[in-house]
Amino acid sequence: MSQPADQDVTQLLERIRSGDDAATSELLGIAYHELRALAGHVWRDQPGDHTLQPTALVNEACMRLLKTNPNGWNDRKHFFRVAARAMRNLLTDHARAKGAQRRGGHDIRVSIDNTQVASLDQGVDLVILNDTLTKLSDLDSRLGQIFELRFLVGLSVTQTAEIIEVSPRTIELDTQFIRAWLQKEMSA
């Protein structure tokens, strides 16, 4: 992974603020690689059931990429939006790999006979989840964004409200709606 110069990221954020969409996708690329690299680093180094929350991951990425002005909340807000989208891309990639595996490869399951390691990938089918999310974002891009920030990055209601710029109560209701909708669509 090539480390972008601090200047680049700050400039990108400048450009995003002035409405330059190309800058968003550039930053998205940077954030995506940074997150992947960080995540890989963390998960290779930490035993599986140690909690490293994605919020910490995004924060870490933000700190690394925004060394020049890590505390400017405006920058951080923009960065979080982009990073949340990058998280989403991680999810998508993952689901794709999973789908390919399902079609051609074989699913590896490891039997684990005590609690020393948490079991993997339980409860949610990522391929279906990913499809459902794509549909959700199409129908309502704000809900898609809320999903990314809350469900993927793990931001709190308040933090999400600040980034999306709506009231916390709306975020709460939307979160409930998203849960319900996902549950319904995925069990269909």
Partner: peptide
């Protein structure tokens, strides 16, 4: 954020 954690894992 648990979803993405499981992906990464």
């Amino acid at each position: 954020g648990g979803l993405i954690v499981r992906c990464l894992m």
